[in-house]
Design a protein around this nucleic acid. Sequence first.
DNA 1: CCGTTTGTACAGAAAAAACTGTACAGAATA
DNA 2: TATTCTGTACAGTTTTTTCTGTACAAACGG
Lengths: 191, 191
Amino acid sequence: MSMEQANSISAEQELILQNARKRVIASIGKNMDLYGITQSIGHLYGMLFFQNKPMTLDEMGEAMEMSKTSMSTGVRTLVDLKMVNKVWEKGARKDLYEVEMDWFQTFSDFFSLKWRKALEINLSALRKSKSELSHLLQQNSEDSQLHAIVQVDLAKIDEAIRYYLWLDRLIDAFESGDIFNYVPKDAPPQG
Amino acid sequence: MSMEQANSISAEQELILQNARKRVIASIGKNMDLYGITQSIGHLYGMLFFQNKPMTLDEMGEAMEMSKTSMSTGVRTLVDLKMVNKVWEKGARKDLYEVEMDWFQTFSDFFSLKWRKALEINLSALRKSKSELSHLLQQNSEDSQLHAIVQVDLAKIDEAIRYYLWLDRLIDAFESGDIFNYVPKDAPPQG
DNA sequence: CCGTTTGTACAGAAAAAACTGTACAGAATA
DNA sequence: TATTCTGTACAGTTTTTTCTGTACAAACGG
């Protein structure tokens, strides 16, 4: 993988710089699966992270030694996750992309997008099932045998709903930035 | 997938109950990829969730219509994530497993395990690279050309470290339970 | 309006992962 | 100790995902 760099520094210095970058890029790329992202897309992200100017698909393909098609799909995934932004430049023929450098924001956006979506789907299923089971009990209110069985499921469902409502408020705290009132961006002086 | 259930309720009632369960199980299974878990393991988890007693590998295999080998590896993944607990029962020949029903705990454990691990690896890489680049600057303190280039990378690395230190404290808040002081498990009465 | 250029859809190839059956080591039982 | 039983390692198969090259539609330039 070759990177843009003014050749105004010595080859030895360049090597040290590139090694320092490579270590971070590899580390980021490997751990990006937490975001549901492929290792190679994670690598692309890491590479973009150290780029000091927006990049085109062709440039990415060259840097990653991969096809432009892969860069297109990869960068779209990153844009969807708001980890990378499309940049507008006057009279630019090609699309340009750069990473969102505010990682606090990236973290919040990721949770808003992915976790909230999962939460909503699960909550919806839980409520629908809860409703059905409640109905079942209502319509057989004298059947204590049935009651005993269904009540166990209902209790589990209620507890699950309780958890998801909490998760919803947690994500709210991320979205609003309130979380930084509780856990400040910078550690308060210890004492 | 067949489930244990005393046949003390009518077939019609049984059907309603099973459908209510299936909906929730399918929903949970689908969204479990956020935990880096395969859909079928997610399905296994959901199935276990509605089981009212600990289960053996053979029972799981029958319920999931899958091989015991898959159950073995699947349940181990879930145990590693602390989503499922191994249960000891007097004189039981086979291993027994049941889901951890405290989802607040499950959430915290997941972040402790996965996110903290990623955090530590990345932080380590960042610090190593930071150290190397700082050295490089120190040893060429008069080279303003080099300084300009490396300083940009160092600024990015410092900001990334700042983010990870915050994430570390956030996970601390999950682990200690402090997070529930900020975002209570139950919504306070609105007003 | 015609000729380029750019990003992506799509189909096929390559790579990775999930799943299974067999075989076996270690634990439990007698 | 011998016997039975349970969980998992491993190799092979199937399924899924990733990646690429080609082809083309939309955008842009002249």
